[in-house]
Amino acid sequence: MNEAVKVEHLTKIYNHSIKAVDDISFYLKEGEAFGFLGPNGAGKTTTIKMLTTLISKTSGQAYVYGNEISSNSIAIRKLIGYTAQDIEVDEDLTGRENMILSSRLYHLSAAKARQRGNELFEILGLTEAADRSAGTYSGGMRKRLDIATALVHDPKIIFLDEPTTGLDPQSRFALWDYIKGLNQKGTTIFLTTQYMEEADNLCERLAIIDNGKIVAEGTPEHLKEEIGGDTITLEIKDSSNSGVTSRDNAVKTLTGLPNIKDIKVLDNNRLSLNAANGSYIIPEIVSLLQEQNIVLGRLEFANSSLDDVFLKYTGHELRVEEQKKKSNVMHHGRKRRS
């Protein structure tokens, strides 16, 4: 097995105190599509920036095609493509001018640059817009142009930092197809995402990262199997107006049931149960709760998903993080991450 990326005990501490990435180890096989799944601030961007030589590591080792990131950064830069979460195209230039600029920076001949540009515009569906100013592009088009400019030199591996964050659903699905196409043509892909669906869809293997640590790693199927059950979410109506009592009461009632593997408290009135053969034990749960005079407001049932995997390993929901982030953005406007 050829390793495209090998990371051992990699750590990044900002300003001597903030541990953004905390002793992570993982690998990427050549030709693989690998993903980092985690909420904002989990350490995804910091990891990508270390691997792409944009920031220095604090400790540990990481190799990209055998080149150590701190001692051999020039060799790495020749092999990789990178797109950041923010879209990095020059909006004063046309799509083609952006491509030619990148080609020149990677020392392609003029003829080769033109040919490669046309090829990539074709693959990424930008042929018609190539000679328009990039400032007139939609978000999805700008992102595709950004990716195209990162591919001029036919890199062995491309690092995509949250490629679809901020895109509308249609552009997102289109971009997924392009990314899959690139991977099928042999490009190794390392992407980060905060979307379960995206990780499930694009990644052959993924690592779940939270608070700078990798908490789980494997194929999406394998990770889901490990959960081994379905998820039942219960919303408990509160009769006594304090909520917590009814909820705790429900936890007590359900603990120890043979099919229930795990009970997690989501918030004041919601519980998440992990259960084998979940659909068969729903009647039992309902009647047990009724006996205890606990009123159910709602019951949701779902076959195991990566959401559950995330919940299992981090103890919190990914969705909640996203909502927090959204409200944050609403209150403070667009925040740049440093």
């Binding site: 944009l54 990178y82 020059d90 990162a150």
Partner: peptide, 14 residues
Amino acid sequence: MDSGFLDKLLVAPI
């Protein structure tokens, strides 16, 4: 730096 374009230049082998 704000637009991130500088990062694009910095990852290139230039």
